[in-house]
Nucleic acid binder design. Sequence first.
DNA 1: GTGGTCTAGACCACA
DNA 2: GTGGTCTAGACCACG
Lengths: 127, 127, 127, 127
Amino acid sequence: MQQKEGGYMIILDYKDARPIYEQIVEKFKLLILKGILQKDEQMPSVRSLAVELAINPNTIQKAYMELERQGYIYTIKGRGNFVAENENLLDERREELKMRMFILYKEGKELGMTKADFIDGLREIKE
Amino acid sequence: MQQKEGGYMIILDYKDARPIYEQIVEKFKLLILKGILQKDEQMPSVRSLAVELAINPNTIQKAYMELERQGYIYTIKGRGNFVAENENLLDERREELKMRMFILYKEGKELGMTKADFIDGLREIKE
Amino acid sequence: MQQKEGGYMIILDYKDARPIYEQIVEKFKLLILKGILQKDEQMPSVRSLAVELAINPNTIQKAYMELERQGYIYTIKGRGNFVAENENLLDERREELKMRMFILYKEGKELGMTKADFIDGLREIKE
Amino acid sequence: MQQKEGGYMIILDYKDARPIYEQIVEKFKLLILKGILQKDEQMPSVRSLAVELAINPNTIQKAYMELERQGYIYTIKGRGNFVAENENLLDERREELKMRMFILYKEGKELGMTKADFIDGLREIKE
DNA sequence: GTGGTCTAGACCACA
DNA sequence: GTGGTCTAGACCACG
């Protein structure tokens, strides 16, 4: 498949303040959670992705290490990196989002905003 | 007031990953928005605050610069730093919060969450 | 016996961090020590096992080399690999286990644990 | 204190198969758990330790990152690394040791060893 | 001064 | 071919 061989799914934003490896981690997490990368599918090799993104292999290495640590991929030495099970991960991620919204809400409360203000804000979103 | 001169309102959390100057900025922004520090009131001097928090004066300097840049305080050379008007700031801040909630919502939508999920999440908050 | 020729006794766990050849060594050591593979019985050929496990023959070769080095099998050129005597091996293995327990105990002692703690830990095991 | 300034507490074993950064992590974990390094005490700086051990700063960096990830230290950018609270860590570590002994026991059971064999083995330890 | 990120290039074990 | 570790050296943000 062209789409999975050629110049594909990861795009770096050098204006972004976050480190490159973190952007890569984030992008792959989404690809996995959305099911675009499926269970046991092979990740691009460290070296090939490094060439493709025109960055150092160490940077990819670091990103993959982080992804493995967070349970998104697993590594087989000499073979490559592969997508892990993602059942629980999706739920965890949703919980995390709710938690972040809670923090946002607390911030707002300090500034005199109410629950209703937030709910209205959400309702106003059209798209 | 003693309370505003002596050992007061800013508490640093060194375990926090954010840089110290950023924590200071954040704390002062809240104090100003909540009206605890009022318009034209003098900010603690760079030196005194540095001593009080036992940190480098450069760090305070950087925090004040940032506060000035964001319009929370104004500087009079040779006199000190003073709290600026905060009417518009509060509204801006609320808008910013709504924007951040919108971003959160977009993230959630990518993971299959709906507006209702978020609204439910908000409603569930007791405190 | 079919069971010893066809799809049999070795199952690989790719999620396991250990290299594949090491897993194979470990599995065969157990099969031999438990007497499931008996003295002078022929081991599956390198090629057939490689096909069966769908891995590189080099990996099987490496595993067999290691098994021979540790005295679990012997090789006859042009004929194949065969299970070695296992009398002493079982005792050696038990000694090795005791040694590893001793190391574990030393680690624990450094952290303030006593012999009694370990013995209690063992006693608590139900199954 | 000489002991804490000069050539001190970490000794590398180049014959050890484990990577250097892992040895460093292990050594510091012990120093912290044993209370030799106390809460909020400053760790040697990345660069100074690199010089002292005659290895690359990146290697120390990696070790410290791992220690932080496991909760043994915390980092303040621009200031240094500091020893974290270690209350829970000690208990966790003891639990981990018991778990490892349980695994050892299961291995032994497969080879016909009994609980009694292990307990006897422990009792025989003199030192 | 401190830690954090990144590059370029090397060597090793594993398959 | 794969990933994992390490070195040497650079640049940045923070204090």
